[in-house]
């Protein structure tokens, strides 16, 4: 069934959008990541303008992060003070990101920069995750028990504005979580992804937060950031498509249910290996598009 997207001003098959939402929801159920890294490229591939793909994706992430946040809050697995500090950085980052996005659009390079950033991020994260999970599988050790934290690195020790975070039992400079949040905010605005797959390891390895608190705290930060980002995209760019968001969210809700059930049967290490392989696959696909001579060298866009 074809559905006309009023903001994107184009008609798309509703089934494929629902299916995409379900698939991405499934992934988020299994792996606990938002899956935006798959959704944005797919939407752009379907011909949806990058600005609308990114803006609508931000809206969809609000729903995805809230449903995850509920269960973490109930178990007390959210460090709101730490999340608040990250939020301070991410709000600045998301405002700056919207400006950068506009600049790149103006320069006509948005469709090169988005894939390039994806390739950089996905390859790095994919390789890190793969080596970590494969080595933990081979050595049969619990990876969480021996996480080398960077918080004691002299650089992070010297930073000013030290603060106590009782929930995480940390005494670190507020600039570190704010800096991590800043990068997260940029990612939301430029790439339309929550950035959970980047934030979670950063919080473990750089902040040295207890693993138990990491996912809930990052979801809290992602939810508020995506709310603000949706607001800005809708007001400044008119680039949030309600019909598209609705279809993605519905698919996501169904997919997440199935994903969580499937996730209970998959061992954590294997799940991480599969996720790493998927990150690398998407990044390989994007890279080949940039590196291989395209069939059509020309592209046209309405201004």
């Amino acid at each position: 069934m074809q559905v006309y997207l009023p903001i994107a001003e184009m008609s798309v098959p509703a089934e494929s959008i629902l299916l995409l939402g379900t698939f991405v929801g499934f992934l988020s159920g299994v792996f606990g990541v938002g899956g935006g890294f798959l959704m944005t490229p797919f939407l752009i591939f379907m011909g949806i303008p990058p600005a609308i793909a990114v803006g609508t994706q931000a809206n969809q992430l609000v729903a995805a992060s809230l449903s995850g946040l509920f269960s973490h809050t109930k178990r007390g697995n959210v460090d709101f003070k730490m999340g608040g500090m990250m939020l301070a950085g991410s709000l600045i980052g998301s405002v700056l990101g919207v400006l950068v996005f506009r600049l790149l659009q103006h320069l006509g390079q948005i469709d090169v920069v988005i894939p390039l950033l994806y390739i950089l991020l996905l390859t790095t994260m994919g390789l890190m995750m793969l080596t970590e999970s494969v080595s933990s599988l081979l050595l049969k050790k619990d990876p969480e028990s021996s996480t080398p934290s960077l918080q004691h690195h002299p650089f992070f020790q010297k930073l000013p504005y030290k603060m106590r975070f009782p929930r995480s039992r940390l005494y670190i400079s507020a600039l570190v979580p704010a800096g991590i949040g800043f990068i997260g905010g940029l990612l939301v605005s430029i790439l339309g992804i929550g950035g959970g797959f980047l934030l979670v390891p950063a919080m473990i390895y750089i902040l040295g937060m207890p693993t138990l608190l990491v996912v809930g705290t990052s979801l809290f930060q992602i939810m508020i950031t995506t709310i603000v980002s949706t607001m800005m995209h809708a007001v400044a760019n008119h680039s949030v498509d309600l019909v598209l968001a609705f279809l993605l969210i519905i698919g996501g809700v169904v997919g997440a249910q199935m994903g969580i059930r499937a996730g209970k049967r998959i061992k954590g290490v294997y799940a991480r290996i599969i996720l790493a392989a998927m990150l690398l696959l998407v990044s390989f696909e994007l890279a080949s598009e940039l590196l291989i001579r395209p069939h059509e060298l020309y592209s046209a866009a309405v201004r």
Binding site: A63, S65, L66, S67, F70, T230, V240, A245
Partner: peptide, 10 residues
């Protein structure tokens, strides 16, 4: 848009 997302998230 945000309320819709929050509603479905809930």
């Amino acid at each position: 848009a945000i309320l819709m997302a929050l509603f479905f998230g809930w």
